[in-house]
Simulated assay, not measured.
Amino acid sequence: MKKSTFMLFCLFILGCSHGRIDILDKDEKVVGYCSENFYLHWYGAHDSVDYILYLCAKEHIEKGYRISDDSIIG
Rank of each mutant, 00 (worst) to 15 (best):
L40T: 01
I13K: 10
Y33N: 11
L55Q: 15
D70A: 03
G74A: 02
F38P: 00
D69C: 05
H46W: 07
H60M: 07
Y43R: 12
I52Y: 12
K3C: 00
T5Q: 14
I23Q: 01
Y39H: 09
V31Y: 02
I61P: 00
L53Q: 11
L53C: 10
D70N: 13
M7K: 11
H18K: 12
Y33V: 02
Y65S: 01
I61G: 01
E28Y: 12
F38L: 14
F38E: 13
I52F: 12
S68I: 01
K2P: 00
L11V: 02
G74D: 09
A57C: 06
Y54C: 07
A45C: 05
D27A: 11
F12L: 11
K3W: 02
D27Y: 08
G44I: 06
K3M: 03
D50I: 07
D27R: 08
A45I: 03
K2L: 08
D27W: 04
S4E: 11
H60W: 03
I67A: 08
E59M: 06
N37D: 14
C16E: 07
S17F: 09
Y43K: 13
D27N: 15
G74I: 07
N37S: 15
C56F: 05
K63C: 02
L11A: 05
R20Y: 04
C56I: 07
V30G: 05
H46I: 07
I67Y: 03
R20I: 09
C56W: 03
V30S: 11
S35T: 06
D22P: 00
G15V: 00
Y39Q: 06
K29F: 05
G64E: 04
C56T: 10
S4C: 00
L8C: 05
K3E: 13
V31D: 03
I23L: 01
S17Q: 09
Y33Q: 06
I72N: 05
M1P: 00
L53R: 11
G32I: 07
A57S: 13
D22K: 07
F6P: 00
C34K: 04
Y43H: 12
